[in-house]
Simulated scan of single mutants.
Amino acid sequence: MTSTSVPEMLSDASLAASLPGGFTSRLAEVGGVRLHYVDGGAGAPLLLLGGWPQTWWQWHKVMPALAQRYRVIAVDLRGMGGSGKPAAGYDKKTMAADIRALVTHLGLASVSIAGHDIGAMVAYAYAANYPGATEKIALLDVPHPDEGWPRFGLLPEADQHVDSVIEAGDRSFLWWFAFNQVQELPELLLGDGRIRLLIDWLFTRQARNPAAIDEHSLDHEPELVQIAAECVGPHRIRRPRQLPRSALDPIEVAHHSAMREEHRLVPPRQTGNG
């Protein structure tokens, strides 16, 4: 097990403090797992749940604007960033229970949630299982897992484009889903700073406007993930295994369409020049 000191400029605490809105980096032991979150702003509580392979930092450009209207709580899901990396518990129902435990820990009765990618799946599972503790949800980029997920193929189908360039159409070959199921190998291949290669590849091909992701954002996101890995050894970065076995509850399937209409998060309108 290695021990690597985190450069001050890349620490969660320093990055949180660099954002307008009074943000601070915090840890909470909830439901048997340690969750890291960044908290700031004032108003109705809004949780931000990120995607793979990112940390809370993926939200840093919108957090100051949101903080003018909401109490913003950007959470590292179990397995990512500064949160704990248990060997199991990556089905979305369990991950939603983590968030519910954090909400209770913070003394909040109900929250709105915006989730991206894996975070969107967790947001949906939270709303489905804890409707009384949910105000609104916004799901970005990905639907909740359904019965079709276990049928993902290892090889691309005829109408799927392998390079994942978003302009090539919606039928991208999601090779990383299978890659992430392999035990231990992804950590070895992406260690020693090589995770930046993966992040650059994904953002260049998957982002609608790659130029909108500046070097400041790219330099900090992979460093946060990589430093977390180096601090406590090769098991630090946990991948979203169990995605095809996502503990779907019947209520999650039956109410999917209805909930997408019922729970909507309306972003604050931009005012003034620019």
Rank of each mutant, 00 (worst) to 15 (best):
R238M: 09
C231M: 04
E223H: 06
C231L: 02
R205N: 06
H235W: 05
D214F: 11
D219E: 14
R239K: 05
L188I: 09
E223S: 14
P244F: 12
F203Q: 14
E223V: 07
P210Q: 06
D192K: 09
R236H: 05
L243T: 11
R208G: 05
L202N: 08
L188G: 02
L188A: 06
F203A: 12
A212S: 13
R238H: 12
R241V: 07
D192H: 01
L224I: 15
W201M: 11
A212W: 13
P244Q: 10
H220C: 13
A211N: 15
S246C: 14
R238A: 14
G191R: 03
F203N: 13
Q226H: 09
R236D: 02
L224T: 06
Q206I: 03
V232Q: 10
Q226M: 13
W201D: 04
L188N: 00
V225G: 11
D200P: 01
L197N: 08
Q206E: 08
D200W: 13
D192C: 01
E223F: 09
W201A: 05
L198S: 01
T204W: 00
L218T: 07
I237H: 09
A229G: 09
R208C: 07
P210H: 12
E223K: 12
S246K: 13
W201S: 04
Q206R: 12
R208M: 13
Q226W: 07
T204M: 00
R194V: 05
P222T: 05
V232I: 01
D219M: 15
E221G: 03
H216I: 05
R245I: 04
I237T: 07
D219I: 08
W201G: 02
L202G: 00
